[in-house]
């Protein structure tokens, strides 16, 4: 087996085994940390599909996290305090369906426009659309506006209870594994070959007869829907949501996770989120000015580490 495969298996096993061990040894805090890590990793994996494999530098991906989280928060709010009955529910299936559906729809509507543009226009316009959703939620006083919304009750699912930290973690972990396998399957499929081909040379693919716009749009929608699901999990984890979760700097952090770990690789986004979350945790416990070394580190990585952590693991000879 290749070295990257070994590392992937090792990291995923560690993520499966460590949190229960933490819990049994009385370090519940680390289970929380791991849950956040795994949920953000799902978002990073979804972003990697379009950023890494599709070459679409989306700077508005946190919007889907927000949409997903509010897709849990708003139905719970209505069910608890009354309001629009059609949207009122504690049911997890309904929440997930709403999160994925609305995210896919938002990705479709904005993707139709964003994907007509290229390069730096695409970066800026995805950022602007992300910010549009951010301001939309800020303007909605009913759901707390700027101050955010407390989710009183977590999504109700059959067999498991999300109130149990370990069960919530297990759900998130399984979702991450499924997300990784999904992206892996997609990029290796014929669809994925077209997507990657268009990343490398769009004109060539068009000349071959591919309507690359439709392939990109499809990937864009899949990615948005997947990230919306991560958002629904995050809402259930934090039980508090605010527009801050989807500001543009959150999108920037997601991008950084992908690049840090290594874009267009299976494990890269997971590794990137892990290092990101751990760094954040360690640095912020040392100083309130932790963004300073963090920003310097980010710049250093962009300048000096090509191919991210997976690039380092792969080494030179291994293909």
């Amino acid at each position: 087996m290749k070295r990257t495969t070994w590392v992937t298996v090792f990291v995923m096993l560690a993520l499966a085994i460590l949190p229960p061990v933490f819990l049994w040894t009385g370090n519940a805090f680390y289970v929380d940390l791991a849950t956040r890590l795994v949920i953000l990793a799902i978002a990073a994996v979804s972003l990697n599909l379009i950023l890494g494999f599709g070459g679409m530098v989306s700077f508005g991906h946190a919007a889907y996290i927000g949409i997903g989280a509010y897709a849990v928060g708003i139905p719970v709010y209505y069910e608890t305090y009354g309001g629009i009955d059609a949207l009122a529910s504690y049911g997890g299936a309904f929440h997930i369906l709403l999160a994925v559906g609305v995210s896919a729809l938002f990705a479709l509507l904005t993707g139709v426009i964003c994907l007509r543009t290229k390069g730096v226009y695409f970066i800026m316009i995805t950022m602007a659309f992300g910010q549009m959703i951010y301001y939309l939620f800020i303007s909605m006083e009913e759901f707390g506006g700027d101050d955010g919304l407390v989710i009183d009750i977590r999504s109700e699912l059959p067999l498991v209870s999300l109130d149990n930290p370990l069960q919530l973690y297990a759900i998130a972990y399984i979702a991450l594994v499924i997300a990784m396998l999904m992206v892996r399957t997609i990029v290796n499929s014929r669809f994925g070959m077209v997507l990657q081909g268009a990343r490398g040379n769009d004109e060539r693919l068009v000349t071959l007869g591919y309507n690359t716009y439709l392939y990109r749009l499809t990937a864009y929608v899949i990615s948005g829907a997947m990230c919306g699901f991560a958002g629904a999990l995050l809402g259930n984890f934090t039980t508090f949501i605010s527009p801050d979760m989807m500001g543009w700097s959150r999108s920037g952090e997601l991008m950084f996770m992908v690049i840090l770990g290594g874009s267009a690789t299976t494990l890269g986004p997971v590794l990137g989120s892990a290092v990101f979350i751990l760094m954040e945790e360690v640095l912020s416990s040392i100083t309130i000015y932790w963004h300073l070394p963090f920003g310097l580190m980010l710049m250093g990585i962009v300048l000096f580490v090509r191919g991210g952590l997976m690039g380092l693991i792969k080494g030179k000879g291994d293909k």
């Binding site: 970066i123 991008m255 963004h291 920003g295």
Partner: peptide, 17 residues
């Protein structure tokens, strides 16, 4: 451009802090 964006994103953190 991706590197520009990420590099200056780091710069934002540095300047703001």
């Amino acid at each position: 451009h991706l590197d520009h964006v990420l590099g200056t994103f780091g710069l934002i953190l540095v300047l703001d802090t």
